[in-house]
Design a protein around this nucleic acid. Structure first.
Lengths: 255, 255
DNA sequence: AAGTGGTCTAGACCACAGC
DNA sequence: CTGTGGTCTAGACCACTTC
């Protein structure tokens, strides 16, 4: 088997002043570069741990880091495989447009109406407590894989309400809300990016376990001097590289 | 003691279909919101684990997630404290300027010259193998805390070389390289954001342990139709929220 | 010296995918 | 059913900070 090249005794883990899992990560990382192809499956964790003479928990700590850096992909019941380079997803089209405009590659999933939104969102939306808000769930797919899940909050009194309220089918309603948005003037938008962990619902949509690291992109859409909508998009941190600017940039890993 | 409010038996961990650490994280998160002030120190891990009737490793898994989300700060030998809200750091000044321009809050640390740069950087810089490159290390401080470490790669033949080469003091040399950059025309810049883990050197500069999660911002500066410089900035993911756009946005946590 | 979080071990059982 | 990664335990020792 291919992985036999990652032999025992070729590296001295025990004399290092640094943690074993750190050393292990380095060794594995080098092995991935030189001895494995994208998509190839690694030996299972118990074998790998034995091969390196460490406990399985220690081996897992190294694998976790490599997965965090987008080098590995682990699936329960299946195995650990070498991940392809991160896919670059454009986040900042130079053109400032509303969500749902022609050319954005988000797909509406469903919409509902609510008067309770997370406190942080309410603050960004500048809504009063119990003010009605449309909530649209969307999904972004790139290269056949789901890369992001989104919750879009739209102030109900920012869009002409009658046409939307009449729609009861969730999917149709989502389209209706997005369509109504396009009629508004867009003054500007502000974005933030931060690290988070996937909530249960987003995790399902992203085909990951709850708690997986995600890049949370928060966008605030301003119309007529006031926030009309707030989008909270969660991107898979392991597989995505967010790109800003005119054109797609080349891949670059952390190391 | 204050933490006594997070009592045993108030929640049923054992009947949940979801992992214990996940449940635990939720309970702790709620407790942080309602019963703790920013900066307050939590009971130590052994006590907390006993209080919730779980192994210390399980408790630590929950704490790890909360730290990842910027809710907690853990320091070896000291304890676990409640973290302040993430600080927003502006990444995309509307004005397109070179690094080192007046008004950017980066501080040059040192500079050296090298002909070996990471392969990914060389690709972005469009340099030939063994082509000379200036490497400037910079540091970004916000509210008295280090928030980011940066390595700036500048193509040696993009800047007038003579004036810089004569400078031997690393700090002075860093300033010289940055100063030389300002003379060039800046056509545009492209940015990417991805998740990474701190390398040993960056971790030291950021006052974190190696491997800590960081947001890696890669910027490519284009002059006269060719890349003149590439900046790789690593921001502390636990304490930072990157902001893009005209003005600073309000804080928003992942949950 | 005492107390903290960080690392590591050697087991066990569970949840899920695929045959 | 088997094999995989995911969760969990009850200990041990280490590195670091503070007194």
């Amino acid at each position: 088997m291919r992985a036999a090249a990652m032999g025992v005794g070729t590296t001295q883990l025990e004399t290092a002043p640094e943690p074993k899992y750190w050393h292990l990560k380095t060794v594995l990382s080098d092995a991935l570069d030189t001895e494995f192809a994208v998509g190839e499956v690694l030996p299972n964790e118990r074998d790998l741990a034995a091969r390196f003479g460490v406990a399985r928990a220690t081996l897992r700590q190294a694998l976790e880091q490599l997965e965090l850096e987008g080098r590995l992909q682990r699936r329960r019941g299946v195995g650990t495989t070498v991940a392809p380079p991160r896919v670059g997803v454009a986040v900042d089209p130079t053109r400032h447009t509303w969500p749902g405009a022609a050319g954005d590659d988000w797909q509406p999933v469903a919409a509902s109406e609510s008067d309770t939104v997370p406190a942080a969102v309410a603050r960004l939306l500048e809504t009063a407590p119990a003010e009605a808000v449309h909530i649209v769930r969307r999904s972004r797919v790139s290269a056949g894989r789901p890369v992001a899940a989104e919750l879009l909050y739209v102030r109900a009194d920012a869009v002409p309400g009658c046409a939307v309220a009449a729609v009861t089918d969730p999917a149709a309603r989502a389209r209706a809300v997005l369509h109504a948005l396009q009629e508004l003037d867009l003054d500007g938008q502000e974005r933030t990016v931060e690290l988070g962990s996937a909530r249960a619902e987003d995790a399902k949509q992203l085909d990951r376990l709850p708690g997986s690291p995600v890049l949370v992109v928060t966008t605030r859409y301003v119309s007529q001097g006031r926030a009309a909508a707030v989008a909270v998009s969660t991107y898979r941190a392991d597989t995505c590289r967010l790109t800003f600017g005119e054109r797609e940039a080349e891949p670059l890993l952390a190391g």
